[in-house]
Amino acid sequence: MNAAAVLTQLFAVIVAVAAAPLFLGWVNVCRAWLQNRRAPPLAQPYRTIGKLLHKEAVLAHDVSPLFRFAPYAIFGSMATAAAIIPALGLDLPFARAADAIALVGLFATARVFAALAAMDTGTAFGTLGARREMMLGFLAEPALLMVFFTASLIAGSTELPVIAGTHQSHTLAVHPSLAFAAIAFLMVLLAENARIPVDNPSTHLELTMIHEAMVLEYSARHLALIEWAAALKLFNYACMGFALFLPWGVAVDLASPPVLAGALAVLAAKLLLAGAALALIETVNAKIRIFRAPEFLAFAFMLAVLGLLVRLLVQE
């Protein structure tokens, strides 16, 4: 592991952390356009985070240190995930430290900390949010794992850079199993990022919310980190989707500046499209009842398993 590799790795993380709120802003702008509303500024998420960072933190009377630690743990997990996912280049030294299974584990760690922190407040809403989040999580997590397994059976590896690299080199090969995996992945993405068919990111209606109920007690810098981590999570999921299903344009080696610029441009283009598509999905769908959410995710899980089966049954 040489210095240049560490630098590119650091660069990748910084790009992800810096660009994540922008991506969220873009999704919000697209949503507003599609719904005939006046769009908020593209940089609104940055402003929100900046405003929150400047405020005085308010903590509930008897929360434990776990509650104060959780935002950092959540943010740290998401930033680490950004270091593992090959968004810009395949040759990331840190990506070798953890594979797709560890990545799923990392998301689970963030979720468990969020749920524990929510239970720590001891309010009805906190515990309700924690329960619902864990309920979605226990179905979304295996579905995501199955999606990764479908891809890793094709590549013969669970390392994300190797998977992306394999898919890149077979430009013309069509894998039917990936069609199943892609739909399952999309459903997991929507559920995990509290997007519309499952949760509404802009609601504060207590009875239906999931993610917002969990973070109700957070304020100021803690809330800023949680919001940032949520944006980063969406960004990470988008990049995971690219690595699995649209790996073209990810540089093999990031050493030279023109290659780096190319990779950045391709990533930006993909994110623009993905953001618009996400906004479209959120606009044409209605939020489902909370009791239907497990069914939605069970469907995603079954599709992912089916993808795995198709991979083995249909001689591709």
């Binding site: 993380v13 960072l53 400047h54 405020k55 005085e56 933190a57 308010v58 903590l59 509930a60 009377h61 950092y72 743990a73 943010f75 740290g76 930033a79 680490t80 270091a83 407040t121 001891g122 309010t123 906190g126 007690e217 100021a220 810098r221 803690h222 800023a224 980190l225």
Partner: peptide, 22 residues
Amino acid sequence: LLGASALVATRVYRRRVRRAPP
């Protein structure tokens, strides 16, 4: 990464913490 975020959040934006009922 956790340490860096904690450092940024607590040192750069140094603000008081107030306790209040939930």
